Computed example of a mutant assay.
Amino acid sequence: MEHTSEYLIPEIKLSCYEDKFSRTDIVFDQHMLIWFISGETKIVQSEATHFFKTNDIFLIPKNKPATIINYPKDGLPHKTVVMLLTEKVLRNFYCEIEVKTKNSPISKIHSFSKSPLLQSCLASLIPYFDMKGNIPKNLALLKITEAISILRAIDIEIDGVLANFDDPNKVNLISFMEKNYMFNMPLEKFSYLTGRSLTTFKRDFMKAFNITPQRWLTQKRLELAHYQLSEKKSKPIEVCYEVGFENLSHFSFAFKKQFGYTPTELTAQRTKY
């Protein structure tokens, strides 16, 4: 995968994927504000699937599992300006402001594509990348402060997201896993997001499901894949990545072991009717 990043400071970068496609399952440790220059992205979360393209602006909240699939478009690479809204920066910002935060009940992607003020703020960063690291750090941090201020002006819910510095609390394990099993994350990340140590997570999981986490995850992903192939008429390559498998060959092998036929055989049978 041909990926390059140019940094103004660690919190601001210009990201570029030259490939036909890239895909990753991830939980970001910090909030990410993203402005699209070119290309397309498909973001799959437990409650919704999002599509973003040129000039779209959106905020991906931290500690939220997602499958991110990047595509080039119209012969142009997948290119974005990415601004990390780190806990340190946000704490410094909010320490000087009195806000009564009302934590957002659902940590969701926030879209700001129709905000010319925010687009102007992010677009103004482009000339600085040509300076090859010669931009003063305090000036770059001012751009982050400007972006946060704009977000607060255009989204009344954003303080509940940005000013929430709590670690994940212990959550209902069954509910969380049923919503997020399709994300290909290590068990350590699942345990953290449910507010548990890895040992406690494995113990609670066996009590709840009477099966090991890895076996349960594989079965659930294959069941979802079968449903999408047979009922949603999806393609095997699309299903493979959206249900949490790393590559098509491993997906096909596991699928045939579970059901007795490959994803391709299932789709071929489907077209006969």
Rank of each mutant, 00 (worst) to 15 (best):
N247I: 04
A123R: 06
N210S: 07
F36P: 01
E265W: 04
D166M: 06
T24D: 01
F112K: 04
R152T: 03
L8H: 07
T218G: 09
I12G: 05
K202C: 11
P136E: 07
N92E: 15
L142Q: 08
I34K: 00
F190G: 11
Y7K: 14
L118A: 07
T80A: 11
D155E: 10
A153M: 14
A48C: 15
T145G: 08
I154Q: 09
F183E: 03
I106T: 08
S175D: 12
T267M: 06
F245Q: 10
Y261A: 09
N247C: 08
F129R: 12
Q30T: 10
V239Y: 04
F51V: 12
M185N: 12
D166I: 01
I60A: 11
T24N: 07
E40R: 15
V89S: 11
N184R: 13
N169D: 07
T212K: 15
K132R: 10
S230H: 10
L187Q: 12
L142V: 00
S234N: 11
N180K: 11
R221D: 02
S22C: 06
E40K: 15
F259R: 08
V171S: 12
C121N: 14
R221A: 05
K189I: 15
A268V: 02
S22M: 03
S46P: 03
E146T: 06
I26F: 08
H110Q: 08
K13F: 00
L118R: 02
P105Y: 01
T54W: 00
K62F: 01
N180I: 12
Y192R: 15
K73I: 00
I174V: 14
L224S: 15
K272A: 02
E6R: 09
F21E: 12
P186Y: 04
G260Y: 05
P77M: 10
N55V: 01
D159R: 03
L8K: 13
I158V: 11
K272L: 09
D56T: 03
F176E: 10
L222E: 05
K88Y: 09
L187W: 08
E87Q: 13
A153L: 10
L14D: 07
F205K: 14
